[in-house]
Write a protein that binds this DNA or RNA. Structure first.
Lengths: 335, 335
DNA sequence: TTGTAAGCGTTATCAT
DNA sequence: ATGATAACGCTTACAA
């Protein structure tokens, strides 16, 4: 920067003024500076800048894993939103083993991160999030934490769940089982609540529907489907409501492995609309979550918080049911 | 830090010595410092540290998109490797439109990034990579750039391709079509070369095998499969060698849509072994690339380069053929 | 073994 | 409108 100042025969402060539009400077000198910048390929040292400004122009994104396409989509939204303000996104993937985001707290504390977007798909304990939020703003995305009202961007899981469930009921199904998510998770609670609303609306007793609790992973879908479909053919459920696509895919897998036809023998629905869900056979009927948008809005909300203004980006995004091939009428016809 | 020094009744340099093990300090005073650090929840300002050290402890990861699970797996490897040294990974997803990584070059120049791991799955022009490498070390992962020997970590595509092709030939297929990747890409070239080696080894004329050039995306697999399978049933290829899984999935999709059975009527193989490939019907025979390891080693190589030492992490990783259900004997029996 | 002090490259305050 | 100059929080000679 000193070099630039010399080449342009001005002072360093003038260079700074030009670069940041932070002071008045005569057009002619401004051009001299700009020329020198180009000539010397000068680019300001961002560490020095952050030091002075006490802001790193960097946010953290905490995701449990990237290979889950849902998280990947959120991440892309986060990245895109951040890039609208030239803010960097650092990727934090908490170690499955070991101390998780105590680490991230340190990043926040040490001013390497201005804030964090936190995606806890697997239900990391609130404690670590709260620890984080002691040191800087944290916006939750997808998963909320009931007790603690932290700012969050999520989608209207309950509505989506209610609507797929209604679709299944409309087909005539009455013997239904739910394969739910971890009961500690907000999304799992919401989806279950949505299903139950639909049951009630159809004149069923919600408490009469068995709920198996899974962990949102494919394996648990497979295992719980086995459990749910164990009874004799005339008594077992004709439809499985799975709280996410991964478990639904596991359920489909199980059915295939034992010769139960989907949707002829049993209908299955998921939740999330992962890209893979339209690729498997049968194509999965599910609920689309605006993953990309959630990531995007979470970052916008974070920006608003960093600037101490009310954010309109917080809140619930809409979901949409994706009607596909994994749902049909119950085997015996409408009962 | 000054606060810590005061609480511990030592000077700031002593605090620094303790925190970095960079100077001798009496055990008793060291403890006083450590206590003060805990008491005050002190955490050093990393901006100031970077400023002084001229290193940001941060690397960039450039990927074309995260929703491609292959890239996501590489990214996870990168993240894991970086975290072994408390180095941050910033996610750079070049804008599809607009000026791409001129931007990233600036990040390198402005010392926000110490180096970059570059994954150019879609074949971004070498120019932008070279621009990048003017300002800091760049390690390529997955895709190499023939003319320019930049450090790269990739896998032995040629061998993998040769081996799947041999598997297909062993089944008796002789009327074969290749759905290749963009011819400018190293991986596409390698895979094609591998296929041809297998053809030659089986006594076929490699030049007699039609090669359709795709772009590694699912759509192009669908379209090119249509093209490849256009001829009358007795003359069309009995096997499709696809240079990646996405295109193979597209090809399977096309076959399903027009009632061609896989593998009964036509066998299809892919390359990459995306998680989804084992989920579709039929399960796709393909070649596994050690995506995670490539990302991991790329970062290790980058670290070595930053420390000016020879790196042993560079070079080719092994591939393994995944035998599954999308390959069978050719329709007429072995010809 | 410990402390003093000189930077690192910016920004921002204050004179001019 | 412009230019000195003092921070920002840390590391590291160098001196004691």
């Amino acid at each position: 920067m000193k070099d630039v100042a010399e080449h342009a025969r001005v002072s360093v402060s003038t260079v700074s003024y030009v670069l940041n539009d932070s002071g008045p400077v005569a057009p002619e000198r401004r051009n001299r500076v700009l020329d020198a910048v180009r000539l010397l390929e000068y680019s300001p040292n961002e560490s020095a800048r952050s030091l002075k400004r006490r802001s790193a122009s960097t946010i953290g994104l905490v995701v449990p894993e990237l290979t889950n396409q849902f998280f990947a989509m959120v991440a892309e939204g986060v990245q895109k939103a951040a890039s609208t303000r030239d803010v960097l996104v650092v990727l934090c993937v908490p170690d499955a083993t070991g101390q998780p985001e105590e680490n991230h707290a340190k990043l926040l504390r040490s001013q390497r991160l201005d804030g964090v977007v936190y995606l806890s798909g697997t239900g990391t304990l609130p404690a670590s999030i709260l620890e984080l939020s002691r040191f800087g703003p944290v916006v939750l995305v997808d998963e909320q934490i009931p007790g603690f009202d932290l700012p969050a961007v999520a989608c209207d899981s309950r509505r989506g769940a209610r609507e797929v469930a209604r679709h299944v009921l409309d087909q005539g199904h009455r013997r239904i089982a739910v394969i739910g998510g971890p009961s500690a998770l907000w999304t799992a609670q919401q989806r279950l609540a949505g299903y139950r609303e639909a049951f009630a609306a159809a004149g069923m007793d919600p408490d009469g529907v068995p709920v198996l609790v899974g962990d949102y992973r494919q394996d648990s879908g497979r295992e719980l489907a086995a459990q749910a479909l164990a009874g004799p053919e005339g008594e077992r459920p004709t439809a499985l409501l799975c709280a996410n696509d991964l478990m639904a895919i596991g359920a489909v897998e199980y059915c295939k492995s034992v010769g139960i036809r989907v949707p002829d023998d049993v209908s299955i629905v998921g939740f999330d609309d992962l890209p893979v869900s339209a690729l498997i056979t049968p194509r999965l009927t599910t609920v689309r979550q605006p993953a990309h948008d959630m990531g995007y809005h979470a970052v916008m909300a974070l920006f608003d918080i960093l600037e101490n203004k009310e954010s309109e980006s917080l809140g619930l995004q809409p979901t949409t049911v994706q009607l596909r091939d994994s749902v049909g009428p119950p085997p015996g016809g409408n009962s």
